[in-house]
């Protein structure tokens, strides 16, 4: 297959993965004004729990289904017992708190699973490559792209078309007014935080066969996810989607065509977009 087409697909796949992380990060930021530095840890926890489930049951699908649950439970406890008491404080305190948690989670993962790099095997049904646009492409990667698009669709339907989604949008726009007209904003925050964490955990399992599962993967994925939401505009689902594709593409094409300077490409993309539009592509400012 033409290098260009295969890189385009790879870029989209990486973008899909980034979207699973960045969407939660962005909504949490939009609602709480807090950048969750433990979001990468949720990804990592999901990946490790998925690894254990897949080993124990031999089923990738079961791992995908079950791994987000404990991650969500941990996030729920973290939000209710630690973040909630700090709502009235400066936002920085909450950011620092999530930073502290990222250390705790790393230690947790290293004491349970060690410091080795593992890999989750892809499901047998998706091991082959399929013919696509006149070339062969690993079917698991195509499935990843499918997961990403499906997640985007579901999230968009929820946020744009349901009552709960309207509440989230109201909270993002102006949480004080939302509270004033009787919305239970703290409940909204807890729910969003928990769902975002579950999504990150899911992303960890899905990325397992490709990125590998190791302590340190949290920072590895957190930084690009940050760049995505800075580029896309914080608090915007559309921004997270477009930003994921832009950064996924910039990174993949950079690595393929300019390996020496690839790492700069995503940063350059970010800096240029920020200089032109300080609030990001779809940000409020």
């Amino acid at each position: 297959m033409d290098l260009f087409i295969s890189q385009t697909l790879n870029g989209l796949v990486y973008g899909a993965l980034l979207f699973l992380l960045a969407s939660g990060l962005s909504l949490i930021f939009g609602l709480m004004g807090v950048v969750n530095l433990a979001h990468g840890s949720f990804f990592m926890l999901g990946a490790f729990v998925g690894l254990s489930v897949a080993k124990a049951t031999g089923s990738f699908w079961l791992a995908m289904l079950l791994a987000p649950l404990p991650v969500a439970a941990i996030a729920l406890a973290m939000e209710v017992f630690f973040l909630r008491p700090l709502y009235k404080r400066e936002k920085l305190d909450q950011v620092l708190l999530t930073f502290g948690f990222s250390f705790v989670f790393t230690d947790l993962v290293e004491s349970f699973w060690g410091k080795d790099t593992f890999s989750i095997s892809e499901p047998p049904s998706l091991e082959d490559s399929i013919e696509f646009l006149g070339g062969f492409f690993p079917s698991y990667r195509l499935a990843m792209l499918g997961f990403g698009l499906l997640a985007a669709l579901i999230l968009w339907l929820i946020i744009d078309r349901t009552r709960a989604g309207a509440m989230v949008r109201a909270g993002v726009d102006d949480s004080a007014t939302a509270m004033g007209i009787g919305l239970n904003v703290p409940l909204l925050l807890t729910t969003t935080f928990t769902c975002g964490a579950a999504l990150a955990g899911l992303a960890g399992v899905i990325a397992g066969p490709i990125l590998g599962v190791y302590s340190g993967v949290d920072v590895e994925v957190l930084i690009p996810a940050f760049i995505v939401i800075v580029v896309g505009g914080m608090g915007s689902l559309k921004g997270a989607f477009v930003g994921s594709i832009v950064i996924g593409m910039a990174d993949t094409f950079g690595k393929a065509y300019l390996p020496e300077t690839a790492m700069f490409l995503t940063y350059v993309a970010m800096i240029l977009i920020l200089l032109a539009r300080p609030g990001g592509l779809f940000g409020k400012v």
Partner: peptide, 9 residues
């Protein structure tokens, strides 16, 4: 790391 995290928190 656990201790660093807990002190931070």
């Amino acid at each position: 790391l656990l201790i660093v995290g807990l002190i931070f928190i």
